[in-house]
């Protein structure tokens, strides 16, 4: 796109700047729209599984429900509790939402369609998403109220616990690809099994890690079987309890943006990203971006499905799963995958 603006007579630096800014807006604005629609989809799926109808009043089939909610929330009064640390109280949602947005800079949507194709893309995703913990714990501390405080402690412990196993799972993938670059990881999955199936998830050695990653992703984003940070009957609305107006909505937006991101990462890391499931020429007629979003939406449906059907874990069960099952398993898998690669690819 830089070349296009250069051909209009802009100097290179400005052409680059304008095209990058357009790229950023083309990611950020549809992302917010996507979050609005995915919240609606989530509620619809959840309702359908409970034999309810879900939102169906605002707009055709209730399609505009999220926008009505957004407008309502935007016009609400922002309440800052008298006991709160006001600066931190306002900074926390900014951190959460900013982090949820910037992670998308390295996500490849289709071949070459990525804002920053850096060589350590996966490491950047991991680093940026771990900053998200600050948004949560600062919110809980700054609210100076009991529910948010306990919820923030729970959330922080839960997020860091599952980040450890996610880290090891990612190492298995990186070992196989030999690169941190997201596009290289997707390309590495081309014709991975029997020379025509695309995706690390179809590899028997990596499939268990795909499952661990899917479950860890749910725990990391505090989706329902692991939504101990909210648990309505215990902690009201979790660390967002004292928030109101758009600051409250930023947590929702950030949370769902992270959920979409995790679905996208599932698709990219294990199920071939923009590649069709089978390496067969006619399937490449469908643009890569459609394959990517089809996979992303499939995983979102799985997230919703699990949310609608699986009962909530207890906190000790959650910690047990993270530390006593997933951590040893993924650590052992690093040994297994690297050992297998030493034997077969690099030669002992």
């Amino acid at each position: 796109m830089t070349a296009l603006f250069e051909s209009w007579g802009l100097p290179y630096d400005w052409a680059w700047f304008v095209s990058t800014m357009i790229g950023i807006l083309v990611i950020a604005l549809p992302l917010m729209l996507a979050v609005a629609m995915i919240i609606y989809a989530d509620r619809k799926i959840w309702a359908a599984m409970a034999l309810r109808r879900g939102p169906n009043v605002v707009g055709p089939w209730g399609l505009l429900q999220s926008f009505a909610d957004g407008a309502k929330v935007f016009l609400q009064e922002t309440i800052i509790p008298a006991a709160a640390n006001k600066g931190l109280f306002l900074i926390a949602p900014i951190i959460t939402f900013t982090v949820a947005l910037i992670v998308w800079a390295v996500i490849p949507f289709a071949p070459g369609v990525v804002l920053a194709d850096i060589n350590i893309g996966l490491l950047y995703v991991l680093a940026a998403s771990s900053i998200g913990v600050y948004g949560v714990i600062i919110a809980g501390w700054a609210s100076n109220s009991k529910y948010p405080f306990y919820s923030a402690l729970r959330a922080a412990a839960q997020m860091v616990s599952y980040e450890v196993s996610i880290g090891f799972v990612l190492i298995s993938v990186v070992l196989w690809t030999g690169s941190f670059n997201m596009s290289a990881i997707v390309e590495g999955q081309r014709a991975h099994i029997f020379g025509f199936i695309n995706g690390y998830g179809f590899n028997p050695l990596l499939f268990p890690m795909a499952v661990v990653f899917l479950i860890s992703a749910m725990a990391e984003t505090a989706r329902t079987p692991f939504d101990l940070t909210e648990a309505e009957s215990e902690l009201v609305a979790g660390y967002q309890t004292e928030y109101s107006s758009m600051s409250f909505a930023l947590y929702w937006l950030g949370e769902y943006a992270n959920v979409i991101l995790m679905c996208g990462l599932n698709a990219i890391l294990f199920w071939g990203g923009w590649l069709p499931p089978v390496d067969w020429a006619p399937l490449y007629m469908v643009p890569g971006i459609i394959w990517f979003f089809a996979k992303l939406l499939f995983f979102f449906f799985v997230f919703s499905w699990v949310k609608a059907t699986v009962p909530r874990y207890r906190y000790d069960q959650l910690m047990r799963l993270g530390w006593k099952v997933f951590l040893p398993l993924s650590l052992f898998w690093v040994f297994l995958v690297s050992g297998w690669l030493m034997l077969t690819r690099y030669g002992v």
Binding site: T20, G23, I24, T78, L90, F97, T98
Partner: peptide
């Protein structure tokens, strides 16, 4: 550099989301 720009845009967007409703209110 695109990431730095994105960070700036994201900060401006989320700050606007926090402070604009206070003004509107």
């Amino acid at each position: 550099l695109p990431i730095l720009l994105f960070l700036g845009v994201a900060l401006v967007l989320s700050s606007a989301f926090v402070f604009l409703p206070m003004l509107v209110g």
